[in-house]
Simulated scan of single mutants.
Amino acid sequence: MNKFLLLFIAVPLIEMVVLIKIGQQIGALSTIALVILTAIIGIALLKQQGIAMLNRANWKINQGQIPAREMAEGIVLAAGGALLLTPGFVTDALGFICILPGSRHFLLNQVLKNISINPIHQTHEQTHWHDTQSSQRDTYHRHTPQENKKDSGNVLEGDYERKK
């Protein structure tokens, strides 16, 4: 059986059991209020952590660095936010693990240490396209990687405006 299918079946069942057990202990209205309270606290924390992560990413970009770790953190924060908005205590716990800085960094370190990043190598099949004008209609000229290396000194960047 597919692991994700099993996950989508197991998590709601576990959530229902936990909600029923807690509801029996503290009452239905208190349980609902507690679920709403954890969502509100979680979203406030998500906003704070998201802004901090965006500031770090912006700083890295301004320094000429790639904010790879911050992008990974953004994915974990988004997953945590989705888990917090899902009603239930188990998903809230998982959401808080994704959002709280200490547990999020530990989680990311565990995942990232198993991932190796290789530099991108351009193959002969990869090409670059640029816009050229041919009499009345636009055409696109295909440059191979060899042509790009050969013409690299003659590249101009900018905007253009078509006047009729």
Results as ranks from 00 to 15, higher is better:
residue 147 E to H: 11
residue 32 I to S: 00
residue 65 Q to S: 04
residue 142 R to Y: 01
residue 134 S to M: 14
residue 158 G to R: 04
residue 104 R to P: 03
residue 76 V to C: 03
residue 4 F to N: 07
residue 36 I to H: 04
residue 114 N to W: 09
residue 8 F to E: 03
residue 146 Q to V: 14
residue 91 T to Q: 01
residue 103 S to F: 13
residue 32 I to H: 01
residue 108 L to Y: 07
residue 59 W to L: 13
residue 36 I to K: 06
residue 93 A to H: 02
residue 49 Q to I: 15
residue 28 A to Q: 05
residue 37 L to I: 15
residue 104 R to A: 07
residue 47 K to S: 08
residue 60 K to I: 14
residue 139 T to D: 00
residue 150 K to M: 15
residue 23 G to P: 04
residue 108 L to S: 01
residue 52 A to Q: 09
residue 59 W to N: 13
residue 57 A to N: 07
residue 22 I to Y: 06
residue 124 H to A: 14
residue 55 N to W: 02
residue 62 N to C: 03
residue 76 V to Q: 01
residue 123 T to G: 05
residue 81 G to L: 06
residue 148 N to I: 12
residue 66 I to Q: 07
residue 61 I to N: 05
residue 62 N to R: 11
residue 18 V to W: 04
residue 162 R to C: 06
residue 135 S to E: 11
residue 100 L to W: 05
residue 34 L to K: 03
residue 121 H to I: 15
residue 5 L to D: 10
residue 41 I to M: 11
residue 122 Q to S: 12
residue 105 H to A: 10
residue 132 T to E: 06
residue 50 G to R: 13
residue 70 E to N: 03
residue 143 H to P: 00
residue 5 L to G: 06
residue 88 G to R: 02
residue 159 D to Y: 10
residue 16 M to E: 15
residue 23 G to Q: 07
residue 121 H to N: 14
residue 10 A to C: 13
residue 80 G to K: 14
residue 60 K to S: 02
residue 29 L to N: 08
residue 126 Q to F: 11
residue 58 N to P: 03
residue 104 R to G: 08
residue 65 Q to T: 02
residue 113 K to S: 12
residue 20 I to E: 11
residue 75 I to L: 14
residue 88 G to M: 13
residue 73 E to S: 07
residue 162 R to Y: 07
residue 18 V to K: 02
residue 42 G to A: 07
residue 147 E to S: 11
residue 55 N to M: 07
residue 86 T to L: 10
residue 93 A to T: 13
residue 58 N to Q: 05
residue 47 K to E: 15
residue 55 N to R: 12
residue 101 P to F: 05
residue 51 I to A: 10
residue 1 M to H: 10
residue 29 L to K: 06
residue 80 G to N: 02
residue 40 I to T: 15
residue 48 Q to K: 15
residue 124 H to R: 11
residue 25 Q to F: 14
residue 55 N to G: 04
residue 73 E to I: 15
residue 5 L to Q: 05
residue 16 M to D: 07
residue 24 Q to C: 11
residue 14 I to W: 15
residue 95 G to E: 05
residue 13 L to Q: 08
residue 6 L to G: 04
residue 116 S to N: 11
residue 140 Y to D: 00
residue 94 L to A: 13
residue 121 H to G: 08
residue 31 T to F: 00
residue 31 T to R: 00
residue 72 A to P: 02
residue 74 G to I: 10
residue 162 R to N: 01
residue 107 L to V: 13
residue 42 G to K: 10
residue 23 G to L: 10
